[in-house]
Simulated assay, not measured.
Amino acid sequence: MAGTVQQSKPRARRGRRRGRHRAMMSEINITPMVDVMLVLLIIFMVAAPLMTVGVPVELPKTAATPLPSVEEEPLTISITAEGTIALMKTEIAPDELISKLRAIAAERTDDKIFLRADGRVPYEVVAQVMGALNSGGFHNIGLVTDTGGPNMDGQ
């Protein structure tokens, strides 16, 4: 807050005269405050789209190419139409998924995992499993699909 000093008229006093009396004039200078607010507004407008929370997923491109050969056997998670979760070919309880994934991630050098989900499984279940995969240490998630699906270019 800034203030200015304004000189007032001299007062007549009894006895000796002390000079001019200066009174403080209190005005609020809002220009610096407006400048700071505009800068903060611009920063938040730029940063807000970057603050979305999500699971990093590599979605397939329109033209599928073969995957490069890997040293380890690819790890797959499958979700059936009934909602059961299978790690490779072994059925697993949903509450055990993260602990088993962490144990597997500690032994593997590659963090790539493939997620296979039945088309009738609700999106919420798929998103929850993807969050569990991310919490379990697998950040490179590949979604497995079948070929021959609908073409999005209208032909």
Rank of each mutant, 00 (worst) to 15 (best):
A2P: 09
A2D: 14
G3T: 10
Q7W: 09
Q7D: 08
R11W: 09
A12R: 14
A12I: 10
R13I: 10
G15M: 10
R17V: 08
H21Q: 07
M24H: 08
M24P: 03
M24T: 03
M25E: 08
S26H: 09
I30T: 11
P32T: 06
P32F: 10
V39S: 14
V39I: 02
I42G: 10
I43C: 09
F44N: 14
M45P: 06
M45C: 08
A47G: 09
P49D: 04
L50K: 10
M51A: 15
G54K: 07
V55D: 02
P56F: 02
P56C: 02
P56G: 02
V57N: 07
P60E: 08
K61T: 12
K61S: 14
A63D: 15
A64I: 11
T65H: 02
T65S: 15
P66A: 07
L67E: 08
S69W: 04
V70D: 04
I77E: 00
I77N: 00
I79R: 01
I79W: 02
T80C: 04
T80D: 12
T80E: 05
A81F: 01
E82Q: 11
I85K: 01
A86W: 11
K100M: 13
L101Y: 06
A103K: 10
A105P: 02
T109A: 14
D111V: 10
A117L: 07
A117T: 07
G119F: 01
G119H: 04
G119C: 05
E124Y: 05
E124C: 02
E124M: 03
A132K: 03
L133P: 00
G136T: 09
G137Y: 03
N140F: 01
G142N: 03
G142W: 04
L143G: 05
V144C: 04
G148F: 05
G148A: 09
G148D: 13
G149L: 08
N151Q: 13
D153A: 09
D153L: 06
Q155R: 10
